[in-house]
Amino acid sequence: MNTRRRISLVIPFYNEEENVDNTLAVIGKVIDSTRYDWELVAINDGSRDQTLAKLHAANPENFELVVVDLSRNFGKEAALSAGLSQASGDAVIPLDADLQDPPEMIAAMLEKWEQGFEVVLARRSDRSSDGFLKRQSAEGFYRVMNRLSEVKIPDNVGDFRLMDRRVVEVVANLPESRRFMKGLFAWAGFRTTSIDYIRPEREFGETKFSGWKLWNLAVEGITSFSIAPLKIWTYVGFLVALGAFLYGSVVIARTLFFGIDVPGYASLLTVMLFMSGLQLIGLGVIGEYVGRVYLESKRRPPFVIRSVEQRGRKSA
């Protein structure tokens, strides 16, 4: 009877044909197959290149490869959720296909796990591989997110982490379809520690996350874990109403003491446009939340799996 514990690596792939062979080769070199049984859950997130063909052609020797093919491109958060649903390991480690999450850190994560920690975070101690704008926007996101939300997301920590089986089951069974995974991981809690690493440059291909996608991900995170934007507009409305009351009082007093005064149309138009802009912004914030409630009420699954194929080494 096999008593060795099983480790699952979860990697979403989207148009990563240039990285498939190198990623599988590097992982095959760094894992300790004498101590653990290994599986790599590779999720093809609707790739339009040869990513799926290369995954199907792979035949690793020291780990089992589980190829999960989604019916279309659902996005990284959904693809990661699909991978967690298929992972069978006692510990699960999500990482990126471009190897900017270095597999060499896996051994250190497993050591912390063996010490009793249920979550081991990989914290980026140096983000020099990212551009200036990306570093500043990431720093701003973590600062804003942690001020607005009761769930605190660790700074400079992505999806790269180790999670015990109990943590994975909690996250995988959450019913929501709009899934901001960093927030869900933090919400689950459990005994947590972290290790630092320096993120290397991407060797092949280009990132699939544009500035617009990162912005939408940030909005998704804030609206998924905080209602502070809704509360803020309550105070904005109060301040605007207070300002209007004070201004009205000044106009009344000036009319009583100095007679009737006809204000200019320019100032009136400016105030009207300003108030209209505030109303539209407030409606936009409310619309973000209403839209998410609407999508969640449909109860659609976050992903659809077309097929699952297992290749390579089987557990003893």
Results as ranks from 00 to 15, higher is better:
Leu52Trp: 04
Leu95Pro: 04
Ile305Glu: 01
Leu162Ala: 01
Gly116Gln: 10
Ser297Gly: 00
Asn73Ala: 03
Ala79Cys: 03
Ile106Leu: 07
Arg166Ala: 14
Gln136Thr: 15
Glu61Phe: 10
Asp69Lys: 08
Arg35Asn: 01
Leu99Cys: 02
Arg166Cys: 06
Val171Gln: 07
Asp261Val: 02
Asp49His: 12
Arg311Ile: 10
Ile27Asn: 04
Ser267Val: 15
Arg6Glu: 08
Asn2Gln: 05
Pro103Thr: 06
Thr34Met: 09
Asn44Arg: 00
Gly248Arg: 09
Arg191Glu: 03
Tyr235Lys: 07
Lys231Tyr: 13
Glu296Leu: 13
Pro94Trp: 11
Ala87Arg: 05
Gly259Cys: 02
Leu273Gly: 12
Leu230Pro: 01
Val119Glu: 02
Asp21Glu: 12
His56Cys: 11
Arg5Tyr: 08
Asp164Glu: 12
His56Leu: 14
Val240Leu: 11
Thr23Leu: 03
Gly284Leu: 13
Pro94Thr: 14
Ile153His: 10
Ser297Ala: 13
Leu121Gly: 02
Gln279Pro: 06
Ala241Thr: 11
Ala188Pro: 03
Asn2Pro: 06
Val240Ile: 15
Met105Thr: 14
Ile227Ala: 10
Ile305Ser: 05
Phe141Met: 00
Ser315Phe: 14
Val308Gly: 02
Arg135Asn: 13
Ile27Leu: 11
Glu150Arg: 15
Arg166Val: 07
Leu99Asp: 07
Arg254Met: 15
Leu24Trp: 12
Gly291Asp: 11
Thr234Asp: 10
Leu80Lys: 00
Gly237Thr: 14
Gln136His: 13
Ile281Ala: 10
Thr193Asp: 01
Leu214Cys: 04
Val236Glu: 05
Ala107Phe: 10
